[in-house]
């Protein structure tokens, strides 16, 4: 049996990225401010982690407007969902394997 720790996705080692992915898993789309409130991070920090996830093809960005204000929405991609589920499975195996 392979070691489940090896199956953990390095990209999801950051708590903030885990938080972003968790929110996107259960919502069609989430805007920047809601994500910020949920995860409790600074703008810059959140933007950096969103960029990493986007570069990996795990989330997609839709820029929109509400009146004159920009409203950027983030949603999860198929690849992102698959990767995050695999990561959750690995976490589960770690718990089960050690109990």
């Amino acid at each position: 049996m392979s070691n489940p720790i090896g199956q953990l996705n390095k990209i999801f080692e950051s708590r903030i990225r885990i938080g972003i992915m968790s929110a996107l898993m259960v919502n069609d789309a989430v805007n920047f401010n809601d994500l910020k409130m949920l995860i409790d991070v600074t703008d810059g920090n959140l933007a950096t982690h969103i960029k990493t996830l986007e570069d990996n093809g795990f989330l997609k960005v839709q820029k929109g407007f509400i009146g004159r204000k920009t409203n950027t929405l983030y949603s999860i991609t198929k690849a992102g969902e698959k990767a995050f589920r695999a990561h959750l499975d690995a976490l589960e195996k770690i718990i089960k394997g050690l109990s």
Partner: peptide, 25 residues
């Protein structure tokens, strides 16, 4: 060592659950 791993993993899973709940409900 193994115990620490389990603790950290549990904590991560609780984080995920909490964010999923708070963001969707």
């Amino acid at each position: 060592m193994e115990h620490d791993n389990k603790e950290a993993t549990l904590e991560t899973l609780q984080d995920i659950r909490s964010i999923m709940d708070r963001s969707a409900r």
